[in-house]
């Protein structure tokens, strides 16, 4: 009898400890890991850009008439840009990686592979974690029309301005990342940006969407864009 009681109590304590450890892992440890991974990605990008070995960006290529070099395709799981959203904090900056696999989302924001390239005609769509893995899009509902979403690929600054959102939808609503998203209010083709994350904060029943249009571009030599200056 005593053996049974003892074993059951020990099991309960073990399970309790396991749950506490797991919660600590999900809430804390994934963030520690992701912050490290994201900083690594950003450092790598900066090193790559300062070496000048990066591929010419799409928009940069377009602006130079006669430039025939086609930009290298984004490689799955590789970072190619850094995103800044002043509304989420002046120090908020995250790497954008190609592909939306789970392994990619653990290292930064994820670019939907079948959508347009940064700054190009079409819809540049990016997904990010709302919670866990560094909580990149924790304050997503704070975004308002007019807010700037700034990206750089090492040669060009792209400033997008939010037009609509946060818009709540269901997970199967793939139309939101169409080249001209139906619900966004855009009627003709343009250079758009879509951000997606999960909703509610800790759930997965819905998605939050934000749409933006390309407002301005400038080369990195011209310094940081207006939106990033305090």
């Amino acid at each position: 009898m005593r053996v049974i009681v003892r074993t059951v109590s020990e099991l309960c304590i073990t399970v309790g400890t396991l749950i506490v450890l797991f919660v600590a892992y999900v809430l804390f440890w994934t963030g520690v890991r992701a912050d490290g991974a994201m900083n690594d990605q950003i450092d790598q990008l900066h090193r790559q850009w300062s070496r000048g070995s990066m591929q010419p960006a799409a928009a940069a290529g377009e602006r130079k008439p006669g430039a025939e070099t086609k930009p290298a395709p984004y490689r799955y799981g590789k970072a190619f840009a850094i995103m800044y959203i002043p509304r989420l904090g002046f120090t908020w900056n995250k790497p954008v990686l190609e592909g939306t696999g789970r392994d990619v989302l653990e290292k930064g924001l994820a670019h939907y592979a079948r959508t347009a390239r940064l700054g190009e005609e079409g819809n540049f769509a990016v997904a990010g974690h709302r919670r866990t893995y560094g909580d990149p899009f924790k304050d997503f509902p704070e975004l308002r029309p007019g807010d700037a979403v700034v990206l750089t690929d090492g040669t060009t600054w792209f400033t997008y301005r939010i037009d609509k959102g946060p818009y709540k939808t269901v997970p199967t609503d793939v139309e939101v990342i169409d080249p001209v998203p139906r619900k966004s209010g855009y009627t003709r083709p343009g250079r758009y940006l879509t951000l997606t994350t999960c909703d509610p904060e800790w759930g997965h029943s819905h998605r939050l969407i934000v749409w933006a249009h390309l407002d301005s571009t400038q080369s990195v030599e011209a310094g940081e864009p207006e939106a990033l200056r305090r």
Binding site: L21, F22, T30, T100, W202
Partner: peptide, 26 residues
């Protein structure tokens, strides 16, 4: 604890809903 954090929890975590942030369910 090391085995849990390194192998068991990374396996169990995707079973939770926090990973579903895309609209095409990849």
């Amino acid at each position: 604890i090391y085995v849990l954090f390194q192998y068991v929890f990374p396996w169990a975590e995707p079973l939770l809903p926090f990973n579903d942030v895309t609209v095409d369910n990849q």
